[in-house]
């Protein structure tokens, strides 16, 4: 109990402990279950968790809905692909450099677009996503147009490139865990507190002498970089990118992920991604009905747990406990 109390008093330690345990569990998975095709799926979960975590920071924490996470996933993917495949940079370096591009674009977009509220913001970021998709399709010399780009080097440094699923697994899950830790720390810091307050009432936050626009732009940039890193990891795992990478459909799927897992908890993003990936995979057998199965699942979850699976299950557990205590 005293350990728990100490951890609760210091959120950074609590987050580190939680994520640490989670990462250990994830790293033990291949040891326990061996290698196999399932690892491929797990790697996709690690990759897709990043844009989902990013959107969760923006929407769940700060209450701003953007449809640009697919676009920033694509910019991260294409940016890193071009820098590594065409300019010959190491994938680690190209991944990082691509994030500078993502951050600069996001800061520019954010400064203009975050003056807007609610659905206007969604429409404005949707327009941006459409522009990005067009640029990728039309800038053939650089992006390969509709054909996309092949031959993107696998993630690695100094000649040590990941070449098997199990290697990618052991490189990508620690990255995702660290990003999760970053997101959790941010959410439990003064910045997270300010953002949660902005979600509720921006004018009141301003009246406390807090420059709200700076916080909104800041979280938009951070959130977009999460998507951008996800994109780069994707490119260096599958080895090719096409305009379908980070399309608008993808952005909407990320929103669905949060609707499933729960917007207001970062861990919910992970659960949502895992669920969508599993559904996508196992509904594959039903080809034509895949979309229907996804849709029905989403509707069912929304009906039973309007706030998403994770918050819903937590509430349920609490009620059970209270009911038992009474």
């Amino acid at each position: 109990m005293s350990v728990v109390a100490t951890l609760n008093k210091n959120p950074v330690r609590r987050n580190t402990a939680q994520v640490g345990l989670f990462l250990i569990a994830m790293l033990l998975v291949p040891v326990v279950f061996g290698t196999g095709y399932y690892l491929n799926m797990m790697i996709f979960i690690a990759i897709l968790a990043l844009p989902a975590l990013g959107l969760s920071l923006l929407s769940g924490l700060a209450g701003q809905l953007a449809i640009s996470h697919g676009a920033f996933f694509a910019i991260g993917a294409y940016g890193s692909a071009i820098l590594s495949a065409r300019a010959g940079l190491s994938p680690v370096l190209s991944t990082l450099l691509a994030q500078i591009l993502v951050a600069v674009i996001a800061a520019g977009i954010g400064a203009v677009v975050l003056r807007l509220r609610s659905h206007y913001l969604a429409i404005a970021t949707l327009s941006f996503a459409i522009i990005v998709e067009l640029v990728i399709e039309e800038w053939r010399g650089m992006t390969g147009g509709m054909q996309g780009m092949l031959g993107i080097p696998p993630m690695g440094l100094f000649g040590y490139e990941a070449s098997s699923d199990v290697q990618f697994y052991y490189v990508y899950w620690p990255i995702t865990a660290l990003m999760l830790l970053f997101a959790l720390n941010l959410a439990s810091s003064r910045i997270g507190r300010a953002l949660r307050a902005i979600r509720e009432g921006e004018p009141i936050v301003s009246s406390l002498g807090i420059h709200t626009a700076g916080y909104k732009t800041g979280i938009y940039v951070v959130s977009s970089v999460f998507a951008g890193i996800g994109g780069a990891l994707y490119a260096h795992f599958v080895g090719f990118v096409t305009p379908a990478t980070g399309s608008i459909m993808f952005a909407i799927e990320i929103i669905m992920v949060l609707a499933l897992g729960g917007f207001d908890r970062l861990w919910g993003a992970l659960i949502g991604v895992a669920l969508i990936t599993l559904l996508n995979e196992y509904a594959l057998g039903f080809a034509d009905y895949k979309k229907i199965i996804l849709g029905v699942t989403l509707i069912a979850v929304m009906l039973v747990f309007p706030r998403g699976l994770l918050p819903g299950l937590i509430d349920l557990a609490r009620h059970r406990r209270i009911a038992r205590a009474a």
Partner: peptide, 27 residues
Amino acid sequence: TSLTILENAMLGGHRYHRGDFLSCGLG
């Protein structure tokens, strides 16, 4: 209303501190 009473009051002193996105995320 989504914050605790303590967190509400902590927002009052918020403007005196400078911890940015990066240092807060890194804890």
